[in-house]
Amino acid sequence: MFKDIVTDDGAALQASVAFFVTFSVFLLIIIRAWRARRDDDHVAHLPLEEDSETSHTH
C-alpha cells in the first residue's frame, strides 16, 4: 500500500478520496452538533459568573 501511495499515479486519487471521506465525516459531526439544542449547562455559563462587588483598591 505504501508503495502505491508514493509511486503510483493513483496517489492523487487516493489522497482525494481520503480527503473527501474525512471531510464528509467531519461535516456530519459538525451538522449534528449544530442541530443539537442550544447548550444551557453549568459549564457553558461559567464565563458569565460575575466578580463580587467588593474590590481592593491599591
Binding site: 449544530w34 443539537a36 464565563p47 458569565l48
Partner: peptide, 21 residues
C-alpha cells in the same frame, strides 16, 4: 474568544458541543 465574547454579549457560547469538536 470563548471567554470574553460570552462575557461581552451576556450570553453563553452558542454551542458547547461544537466547541469540543
Amino acid at each position: 474568544m470563548y471567554y470574553f465574547m460570552p462575557k461581552a454579549a451576556g450570553r453563553p457560547v452558542y454551542s458547547y458541543r461544537l466547541s469540543i469538536i
